[in-house]
Simulated scan of single mutants.
Amino acid sequence: MDLSGRTVVVTGAGRGLGRALALRAGRLGARVFVSARDLGAARGVADAVTADSSAAADAFACDLADPVSVREFAEAVAARTDRTDVLVNNGARYLASPGLEDAGDDAIGDTIASGATGTLLTVKHFLPLLRASAAADIVNLISSAAEPRDHRSEAHPAFYAAKAAQAGFADILSHRLRPEGIRVISLYPPDFTDGDPLDPSWDEASRTANDPLTAQSVVDCVLFAITQPRDCFVRSFHFEQLR
């Protein structure tokens, strides 16, 4: 796989899957732009990308629940590059507790705003940069919680609602952007473990069918999809679950 010369934007990249994807993109030669609600966390990942692979990496603060913050993030990236080749919508608030009454109104609103409205506005404001690319991909990290009648997660109903909204948005977006050659790729992973690609003890070969899904495996799916020939539109990845 080779991402040399490509620009990759990852939201929610301060830790976990977003961080792992940023690191792998840097190793494959991409210029990386990362955002997180906490600017310090985003800067830490950008520094790790550069230290790991010498790839250029820029960090930004972006609160996906705040429309102004999303717009300013896109404007800041546009000031540094003339295009976005890969936009990864990874950022979204997770809200625990299964009972509807277990979370306050503000937390519920923030969860839906970051996952649903935040994803939509991120795509809207990055669309000019995506259209400037000769081969643009939009990747949405959704969740198995958005699959019909999937009740495995103990997440709050607000998280289910946010992910269902993301799925509906991705579906119509794929249909409407395909004539422009922009691919929309959605992943529906169950709960997974993070792992750390910088940990020297991390061993991909040690994964077995009895192990939980890892962030690295999800990253592998993303990289597989965005490196396919342009006539290959991998629309979604769905995963078998252990339980």
Rank of each mutant, 00 (worst) to 15 (best):
D150N: 15
I182R: 05
P212F: 04
A205H: 03
P197W: 03
F126G: 08
D58L: 11
L127N: 05
D85Q: 11
E147Y: 00
P67E: 01
G118D: 00
F126I: 11
V219K: 01
T81A: 08
I112E: 02
A116S: 05
A103P: 09
V9P: 03
V68Y: 03
A145G: 11
D211P: 03
R80E: 10
D220C: 05
A158I: 04
R19G: 08
P229D: 10
E204Q: 02
L95A: 13
E154L: 02
S217K: 02
P67A: 00
G181S: 15
E154W: 07
A25I: 06
A46N: 08
I226V: 14
G5D: 04
A96F: 08
L129S: 12
A136N: 05
S201Y: 01
A132E: 06
R37D: 06
D63F: 00
A13G: 10
D52H: 09
A79V: 04
A65D: 09
A48Y: 12
L213T: 00
A48V: 13
I172L: 14
H151R: 14
L3T: 07
Q216I: 09
A65R: 01
D203W: 04
R149L: 09
R243A: 08
G16S: 07
D110P: 04
I185W: 05
F224N: 07
P200K: 05
G109S: 00
T7A: 13
R243L: 03
Y188K: 12
G40I: 10
A145L: 02
L3Y: 10
T214R: 15
L95S: 02
D82N: 12
R24D: 12
R24M: 06
L223W: 03
P148M: 04
A96W: 02
F126W: 12
S69C: 11
L141G: 05
S133G: 13
A57K: 05
S217R: 13
N89M: 02
C221K: 09
L198K: 01
I138G: 03
L129N: 03
S201G: 06
R15H: 13
S133P: 12
G16V: 00
V234W: 06
G12V: 03
T227M: 14
D220N: 14
T11M: 07
G26E: 09
V222T: 05
N140V: 14
A41W: 10
L223R: 11
A78C: 07
V218E: 06
F224M: 15
S133N: 10
I185R: 11
V77P: 13
F33S: 05
V123M: 04
R243F: 05
V68I: 02
